[in-house]
Amino acid sequence: MKEDDIPVLMTTSTEVSDSTTYTFSDKLIMFYTTSLIALSVGYYGSSMAMSPRRDLGEKYSRLVLEVLQFSDDGVKLMVKNGLMEEPPRALDRE
């Protein structure tokens, strides 16, 4: 079938396995989660700036606040589990 360019059915190796080991580390999953949170805040900000309607701006502001509160919970979880020593801070210039 492959020689004639005919699609071949998927093998059983792509099915769900009964493995009990972790595929991804907790640190990697938290990195992706915090990256998606940062992207969502950026998208809400862009949407707020591009929308001519004031009522949508209020809703976007509320959503940004909720997402940032969720982000704060994620940072606390990362600090608690030793994935981050402390949240990033501004440099002390003095």
Rank of each mutant, 00 (worst) to 15 (best):
M1I: 07
M1Q: 05
M1V: 11
K2C: 04
K2E: 13
E3W: 14
E3Q: 14
D5P: 00
D5V: 09
I6S: 02
P7Y: 03
P7C: 03
V8T: 13
V8Q: 10
V8D: 03
V8G: 03
M10F: 08
T11P: 01
T11C: 03
T12V: 09
T12M: 12
T12R: 09
T12L: 08
S13T: 06
S13F: 06
S13V: 07
T14M: 04
E15Q: 05
V16F: 05
V16I: 10
D18S: 11
D18M: 06
D18P: 01
S19D: 11
S19F: 01
S19H: 03
T20G: 06
T20H: 06
T20A: 08
Y22A: 13
T23A: 15
T23S: 12
T23G: 14
T23I: 12
T23V: 14
F24W: 10
F24H: 11
F24T: 07
S25A: 08
K27E: 12
K27Q: 13
K27G: 02
L28A: 13
L28W: 10
I29V: 14
I29L: 15
I29R: 07
T33R: 10
T34R: 09
S35E: 15
S35H: 11
S35M: 13
S35Q: 15
L36G: 14
L36S: 15
I37V: 12
I37R: 00
A38S: 06
L39N: 03
V41P: 00
V41G: 00
G42D: 01
Y44E: 00
Y44Q: 00
G45W: 00
G45R: 00
S47R: 01
M48S: 10
M48I: 06
A49F: 11
S51Q: 04
S51I: 09
S51M: 06
P52I: 03
R53Y: 15
R53F: 15
R54M: 15
R54Q: 15
D55S: 14
D55K: 14
L56N: 07
L56D: 08
L56Y: 12
G57M: 01
E58F: 10
K59Q: 08
Y60V: 00
S61V: 14
R62I: 06
R62W: 09
L63P: 00
L63S: 01
V64D: 00
V64F: 02
L65S: 14
L65R: 10
E66F: 10
L68V: 03
L68N: 05
Q69R: 04
Q69K: 08
F70Y: 11
S71Y: 07
D72E: 10
D72A: 03
D73M: 05
G74M: 13
V75E: 01
L77Q: 01
M78S: 04
M78T: 01
V79E: 10
K80W: 07
N81A: 09
G82A: 06
G82W: 07
M84P: 00
E85A: 06
E85T: 10
P87Y: 12
P87E: 13
P87K: 14
P87W: 09
P87C: 04
P88R: 05
R89K: 15
R89V: 08
L91P: 02
D92S: 07
D92T: 09
E94G: 10
